[in-house]
């Protein structure tokens, strides 16, 4: 079998790519996409540890299901915020949304 550290390193790679996306992109929708990628990497870790530690304790999968639910809620609210901001300011670029900056 593939050693677990490969899965973990691969998940860390996806997480780092997502982190880079969140930090470097200016489109607010693309920033949310980076957050999705990071949540997904966390899910891979949960499922991999479930598989390699104890198959009978399926808590890892239960937590993965909860992460799915939280991700769905986060995307719904985040995209609603993006739509609301676009209506008022006609932009979704993160550095043009600066009303709170003095």
């Amino acid at each position: 079998m593939v050693p677990i550290s490969w899965y973990l390193i691969w998940a860390a790679a996806l997480f780092s790519i997502g982190l880079f996306g969140v930090l470097s992109r200016k489109n607010a929708v693309a920033i949310l996409m980076g957050v999705e990628l990071m949540l997904n990497a966390v899910n891979i870790n949960l499922v991999a540890f479930w598989r390699y530690l104890d198959v009978r304790a399926i808590a890892g999968q239960a937590f993965a299901v909860m992460v799915f639910a939280v991700a769905a809620a986060e995307v719904a609210v985040g995209l609603a915020l993006v739509i609301s901001v676009y209506r008022r300011r006609q932009t979704v670029a993160a550095d043009e949304i600066d009303l709170l900056k003095w």
Partner: peptide, 25 residues
């Protein structure tokens, strides 16, 4: 952003390889 992402990746890879996380599967 690239620096922070690479640092995180290197750190995670170093920890995982040096601790030799080897569970039997």
């Amino acid at each position: 952003a690239a620096l922070l992402g690479v640092v995180l990746l290197v750190e995670a890879g170093y920890v995982l390889l040096s601790e030799s996380v080897s569970l039997p599967g």
